[in-house]
Design a protein around this nucleic acid. Structure first.
Lengths: 132, 132
DNA sequence: TTTGACCTTCCCCCGACGGGAAGGTGGATG
DNA sequence: CATCCACCTTCCCGTCGGGGGAAGGTCAAA
């Protein structure tokens, strides 16, 4: 298979597949005589794994590790779990940050008339010095 | 005041203050004879506004608009509100994405032994083809 | 034969920073 | 007075996860 075919099958795009290869996340593809990358079913399998990892928010670095562990039958699940735990903590942190922003933002949006007058609680809030 | 002083007062760093100036978010600072940027209390006020806007997650572009509206006494609050509403929607989307990731991740972490054995539900899940 | 759809590598762009080089300035100290 | 150190300036490069598009090679159908 050529790159656009595996791209369609893995729901990635060709550009990212080349990048994953360059970053060592996936093995180097074979080439035909003209230099075109050639793929097998196995490569599609790996690419789908990468796609799922990215969909769960794992970084490129984590994904590289996860692919490597996945392919290494002598891995320890604790290694995998540590990566997941770290990512989980980061996501929880981001979640809290966004929730905090939304808490303020929801209130501001609710209180703003949104008409032609210049009075605006949003700007007023941004102007306020935090007590801190 | 020189840049590091306003940086301390606004809880930003010098680098970002220069960048905000370059991006037109804040007015161009005055200079002394040696080319050092000089600031007033008013500038600190603007910088604090910028800081709060960024803390609420507004982009640089939005922040630039908000500063401009803030300083424009003939603004309409609807203009401000539209910016806030758009940002609110984006945050809600991000929130939902992170919650979805965490929902899966929490379950995976819970089910992974995290020991020396290679069996790992996390890798197993990533390997699975989505029904889709 | 030509056309169009692929493929390749290459470099630049985004946002929101951070690091650090290279060089100028300014005030306190020896 | 010289020197030292902290600060200032501009500039370029790196990060992460991509996207856009140029320039050129390949291949199959019309």
């Amino acid at each position: 298979m050529k790159i656009s075919e595996v791209a369609a099958l893995s729901e990635l795009n060709s550009k990212m597949i080349r990048r994953y290869e360059e970053m060592g996340i996936i093995p180097k593809a074979g080439r035909n005589l003209s230099g075109y990358r050639l793929y097998t079913e196995k490569d599609v399998h790996i690419l789908k794994f990468v796609k799922k990892s990215r969909e769960l928010g794992f970084s490129m670095k984590d994904t590289k590790q996860l692919v490597s562990l996945w392919r290494n039958k002598t891995r320890s699940s604790s290694h995998v779990k540590n990566i997941a735990l770290k990512h989980q903590k980061e996501l929880q942190k981001k979640l809290a940050e966004i929730q905090a922003m939304l808490k303020t933002l929801d209130e501001l949006v609710l209180n703003c008339h949104g008409d032609d007058r210049p009075d605006c609680p949003i700007l007023h809030e941004l102007e306020k010095c935090r007590a801190k």
